[in-house]
Design a protein around this nucleic acid. Structure first.
Length: 282
DNA sequence: AGCTACTCCTGGTAGC
DNA sequence: TGCTACCAGGAGTAGC
């Protein structure tokens, strides 16, 4: 499922094909994909606009639109489980599972493809109109070990659901959380306020390093869903230590990796390396 | 504040 | 081989 590295890769690889292009025509194949505004407003707002910039906030993709020198709003996209974006040369028919197709002024087609229909590509006057409250970007300088350690102390919650909470940190998902917790030997149900300062510092470093390396490898592709806009799989899945490795030996101690459920999420752990702390009695 | 359950979806797969 | 039943899962929402 696309997380920060996959979304960042999508933004980077879309830019050369989309920046400066005008959207000549809009085809909406699944109405819910364009969100609450509805298809009519989407078409009206987007047709004729030019894409001036593409950026990322958390797992959201932001396309800035202009008409001449005037601001013309934004497209705000989220890939959710199975979403993908690509630009194809002029085509006869849309790709399978294409939910929104936008024909560009050079004849190419910008497609939003999404098997499970959870993804969104919405029009908004301003990103704030549709973006929820999001925590800091884990690859920005503002995300420091000191801030992270203090923030963990300030919450009383199992560490994994907290890291998945986008209002706490923006961009982490199931894969990179499982990997970072394994690397630092922290059990996913460890209470956040009981993570020591040294463990918090190590976890901060693991998050930053994991995301940076995954971006470098253009994300992770372990099923049929995530591909770069060029249709290529990412390669970070080759680096997975625990994710998707249940039943296989832990790369550190050799004991089998387990799959448990934490906060309704499939969770991959080595219970030998990641010990659950004993509950404290008051 | 934090938890649990439910919803949205469909391809893949386990079980028969 | 073909059928059915179930599952994954990000995030929004509701209820406790």
């Amino acid at each position: 499922m696309p997380e920060l590295p996959e979304v960042e890769t999508t933004a980077r690889l879309l830019r050369p094909d989309l920046i400066g292009r005008r959207i000549a025509a809009v085809q909406i194949e699944w109405q819910r994909t364009v969100g609450k505004g509805g298809p009519d407003r989407f078409r009206r707002s987007v047709r004729g606009a030019e894409i001036q910039s593409i950026s990322r906030r958390g797992k959201y993709l932001l396309f800035e639109l202009v008409r001449g020198v005037d601001a013309a709003g934004w497209l705000v996209g989220h890939l959710r489980m199975s979403g993908r974006m690509q630009v194809r040369p002029s085509i006869k028919e849309p790709s399978r599972w294409c939910r929104v197709a936008m024909t560009l002024d050079n004849g190419c087609v910008f497609e939003f493809i999404d098997v499970r229909k959870f993804g969104r590509l919405e029009y908004a006057r301003s990103p704030e109109d549709v973006l929820p409250k999001l925590g800091p970007e884990p690859i920005d300088p503002e995300f420091t070990a000191a801030w992270f350690s203090a923030a963990l102390q300030g919450r009383k919650r199992a560490i994994k659901p907290l890291l998945l909470d986008q209002s706490f940190i923006a961009g982490l998902g199931n894969i990179y959380v499982d990997e970072a917790l394994f690397e630092t030997r922290i059990h996913p149900q460890h209470p956040s306020h009981r993570v020591s300062a040294s463990k918090a510092t190590a976890l901060h470093a693991a998050i930053v390093r994991t995301l940076a390396e995954a971006i470098e490898r253009e994300g992770s592709s372990f099923d049929a869903f995530y591909r770069t806009p060029q249709g290529q799989p990412g390669t970070y899945q080759d680096q997975f230590q625990v994710y998707g490795r249940h039943g296989k030996p832990c790369r550190r101690c050799g004991k089998p990796v387990k799959r448990i459920v934490v906060g309704q999420r499939g969770t991959h752990v080595c219970l030998n390396c990641q010990r659950k702390p004993r509950p404290k009695r008051s």
